[in-house]
Amino acid sequence: MTTPTYRCACARHTRRRLLGWALAAPLGMGLAGLAGCSDRTGADSAHAAAPADFDRATSCELDGMLLADYPGPKAQIHYAGQAQPVFFCDTVELFSALLAGEQVRAVAAAYVQDMGLADWDVPRGHWINARTALYVSGSRRHGSMGPTLASFATQEAAAKFAAEHGGRVLHFAEITPEMADLSGGALHDTRM
């Protein structure tokens, strides 16, 4: 079995090498490399943007859904050179954006919500670094796009959630593009 190779402007890199950058480097540099081989000097992790919160009018970058109208973990990316973050109504969308081969914008910071502290049905605040978070894949709890990657700050909280709702605990680098597949998310959205 061969490791898939992804083509980017600077060279040929395997998914394993790109994910390795994300783990080995500070968030800004690691995700900038992961986000399409952009100039890794553009993201200054020492001055990474602080997480922002959303309000009733904040919409998702990918589909325009209002974040406040849906349950489950939310996410945000702060792109280098961009004053405001972009928000995602689901962590699956965050990974879809970060793992997309066509992603070329340098990422300064990425955050997800700690669902060990946030209310699942009305999540607000409790932002944590996306790279250091733990994720539960395959649980019975759904987010705005259906099956989601529940995010947690601690191993204990992630394991407790998995024991109660099913699924398995994963680290950031273990999330694959297949886990971030957005096709079919609308099948689970009963509010559309």
Rank of each mutant, 00 (worst) to 15 (best):
T2C: 00
T3I: 12
P4V: 03
T5H: 04
A11Q: 15
R15H: 07
R16D: 09
G20I: 07
G20D: 07
A22N: 09
L23S: 07
L27P: 13
G30C: 05
A32G: 13
A32H: 08
G33N: 10
T41A: 09
T41E: 06
G42M: 11
G42K: 14
A49R: 15
F54L: 02
R56I: 00
T58R: 01
E61R: 02
E61L: 12
D63T: 12
L66Q: 08
A68K: 09
P73C: 04
K74C: 06
A75L: 11
I77G: 13
H78R: 10
Y79T: 09
G81C: 14
Q84T: 10
P85V: 01
F87G: 01
T91H: 08
L94S: 04
S96P: 08
S96N: 15
L99Q: 10
L99S: 05
E102K: 06
V104T: 15
R105N: 14
A106G: 13
Y111I: 02
Q113V: 00
D114H: 07
M115K: 05
D119V: 02
D119P: 04
D119C: 07
W120D: 07
D121I: 03
V122R: 08
P123Y: 10
P123D: 07
P123S: 06
H126F: 15
I128E: 10
I128R: 10
T132W: 09
L134F: 15
V136F: 06
V136H: 12
S137I: 09
G138I: 06
S139L: 10
G143A: 13
M145T: 14
Q155H: 14
E156M: 06
A157F: 07
A157C: 12
A158R: 06
A163M: 11
E164W: 05
R168E: 12
L170F: 12
L170C: 05
H171V: 08
F172Q: 04
E174W: 06
E174P: 06
T176A: 11
P177D: 08
E178V: 04
A180R: 08
A180P: 14
L182G: 14
L187R: 15
L187Y: 15
T190I: 15
R191K: 13
M192K: 12
M192F: 08
